[in-house]
Write a protein that binds this DNA or RNA. Structure first.
Length: 197
DNA sequence: CCCTGATTCGC
DNA sequence: GCGAATCAGG
């Protein structure tokens, strides 16, 4: 496979959307994630900047590695074109309600993935909640059948409502949820201020 | 062990 | 230019 125009475009698009190199590689087919990353670099769009790229802490690096070769300073990449993608913006408002419990889940989860108890009226880390509502905008919004071992199975919305979906973002390794949802799902029951130390 | 991106360097 | 191997991290 070679980097045709279309493939490069898709690469750019997906990379811009925050997809991981491996996901992009999988989508493109015929290439490895290394190839994707390599291409990304060559295209000069290594960082996913767009405006929210904090140029913090880039002054010096504690480089203490024995480099037995001549080192070439990487050329600074010019400002890439921020392709404006007028994609979907159907949900300007995010409901801040707690995830509703699943209906008859025990019978319909294909992979037999247990869905841990939903934090109902629990007191969850506000930061974690904020993170969740933020990532829910980026959620894949998968249906039940679309869930895999690698997609976040966090339910969003009311199951009795047409707009009920599953997060679908890449899961945290091992866990059934993405990072953000793991944050609220596996909140160690420590509402108490008892920290063993 | 799963994953991520970053870099190097032979091709 | 390409990407496998490797590196460095989560």
């Amino acid at each position: 496979m070679s980097w045709t125009d279309e493939r490069v475009e898709l690469l750019k698009k997906m990379w811009g959307e925050g997809q991981s190199a491996s996901q992009i590689a999988k989508e493109l087919g015929g290439v490895t994630r290394n190839a994707v990353i390599g291409k990304v670099h060559r295209l000069g769009l290594s960082n996913r900047a767009g405006g929210a790229a904090p140029a913090a802490a880039a002054a010096d690096k504690p480089e203490a590695k024995p480099k037995p070769e001549t080192k070439v300073k990487p050329a600074p990449k010019p400002a890439p074109k921020p392709e404006v993608e007028p994609e979907d913006q159907p949900e300007p408002v995010v409901e801040v309600r707690a995830p509703a419990p699943l209906p008859a889940r025990k019978a319909i989860i294909p992979a037999g993935q247990p869905l841990p108890p939903q934090p109902s009226a629990n007191e969850i880390d506000p930061a974690a909640l904020a993170k969740v509502s933020e990532i829910e905008k980026k959620a894949k919004k998968l249906t039940l059948m679309e869930l895999t071992e690698k997609t976040c199975k966090w339910p969003v919305g009311d199951p009795a409502t047409p707009d009920f979906w599953f997060c679908g973002l890449p899961v945290q390794q091992g866990k059934p949820y993405c990072e953000a949802h793991v944050g609220v799902a596996f909140q160690p029951m420590s509402s108490r201020r008892d920290r063993r130390r």
